[in-house]
Design a protein around this nucleic acid. Structure first.
Lengths: 268, 268
DNA sequence: TAGTGGTCTAGACCACGGC
DNA sequence: CCGTGGTCTAGACCACTAA
């Protein structure tokens, strides 16, 4: 009767239902509840079923239900305290991690047509900042790509991304009309697992202005990001600058965990 | 030998060490490891001890160690996969949830002297947007406060915060020189548990310009936020506008959970 | 093949909220 | 007082990585 599982694809044969794609049971429970919340089955502020009820409904133990709840909590859908049932505090954000890292995926999810015009590519020695961000040794090379990103033909963002040479070599072999480097990398087995973002306001330099169609000194919303693969190895460092009125970032934070922070302006 | 615990203050008598302030054991383990990571005891990219080692070191079960690890993971300090030890991918951010919501706490943590000049207060019927954000019924009243925030006397941010009337009444009774409303509210038993933030770029209106000392139309970094208490009830809705070069926001996101999202520009 | 984390179970006691 | 979530234990099997 033991019910164990891998993250993907399960040999199965064990008891219990399983998510359609063989996902872990706690993920299925979380996904189901998230969907129900999104469908308005619970009012905002409404009470969820108890752990015991859910455990019985899905035929799992309380621990598994709690794992599902922890997921929903970090996603900002529910709040919980001892003594009372969990309550709904938010709706599912349709944004996946993939859509956050990939301009192409994000654009498509909003119904727009993404485009990318390569402005320049460059392979050279990493400077000290790049070495620090990508955790590279002295003398290491990096591959830089600058691309103008468009939504339905309209310039929206200028992207300057630096990759370690191993990743850069994969990119160099891609067809020149590749829209999404992120997707291409994932197809090559380079998986994105974590990212650290810094969001602030900056001023357009000459290149920004020329490509985005604004004037030097005009304000831009800047997102800088270091992404790492599942082994913790940095695989990209990017500086993305958006024209005003094109994008907003949303974050959930909670006393329980907290991934958002405010910092004095400065570098990195 | 059972080791259970409340979140604060524990009757104790049970086996095992406890954090100095009677915190849960898994929080102590997480805090210890976070400190060690911050002290450079593990290289970035370095491997952590195994679950078993940590369980033995602290005299707890593997489940408790895993709870601690889950915390460190959501905080962006470590990455983990099946088959290999966890690795360090980040350093502890000194920002607590409280410092994120309270300008005063944040300023002090950076060594600056925070100030707040009340520009206006207002009690009136909530407009439809405010009712939606704070989940108030038609006809409900809100209390609005506008304050100019300063760092060491220098204007930095203009804060427009709307509170439900119950909270507003608490604020109305405060001394006029109260620096931190957030701290005052917490002292009154109004606790902050969750917040949903939206970060984008906006243009200074006439009031912004007059108070912040810039010109109308100048760019500002805007953070809008709805905070809820542990019961899931919204307790504030705020629109904070920062002068450029004063602040940056940092966020960690991961494939496992994800609290950051990118959205097309628009309302809320 | 051995080491290590991912998933799950079954049961226990406790703290808190609300009736 | 009772319902509910928070914390913890002890043990199990599995999937994945690396030697």
């Amino acid at each position: 009767m033991a019910e164990q599982g891998g993250e993907d694809r399960v040999t199965d044969g064990a008891a219990g239902e399983r998510g359609a794609r063989g996902q872990a049971m706690y993920r299925k429970v979380a996904a189901d509840l998230g969907r129900e919340i999104g469908d308005g089955r619970y009012d905002s502020g409404g009470r969820l079923p108890t752990e015991g009820e859910l455990a019985e409904r899905y035929g799992v133990s309380r621990g598994t239900v709690r794992q599902a709840m922890a997921l929903l909590r970090t996603e900002g859908l529910i709040a919980s305290r001892r003594g009372t049932r969990r309550v709904v505090i938010g709706v599912p954000r349709p944004q996946s991690f993939g859509e956050l890292l990939s301009f192409t995926r994000w654009a498509r999810s909003t119904g727009e047509e993404p485009g990318g015009l390569i402005v320049a590519t460059d392979t050279r020695l990493a400077d000290p900042t790049e070495r620090a961000q990508l955790r590279l040794p002295e003398g290491a090379e990096v591959h830089q790509v600058r691309r103008l990103r468009t939504l339905s033909g309209r310039p929206v963002m200028l992207e300057r991304t630096v990759y370690p040479s191993a990743v850069g070599e994969l990119l160099a072999g891609l067809p020149s009309d590749t829209v999404s480097y992120t997707v291409a990398l994932e197809d090559s087995g380079v998986l994105f697992a974590d990212a650290q973002h810094t969001i602030d306001l900056c001023r357009a330099d000459d290149e920004d202005a020329r490509l985005l169609g604004c004037r030097p000194g005009d304000p831009l919303l800047r997102e800088r990001r270091v992404s790492t693969d599942p082994t913790g190895t940095p695989i990209e460092w990017s500086d993305d600058r958006y024209l005003p009125e094109t994008v907003a970032f949303t974050v959930h934070s909670s006393a329980a965990s907290g991934s958002l922070a405010r910092r004095p302006a400065g570098d990195t």
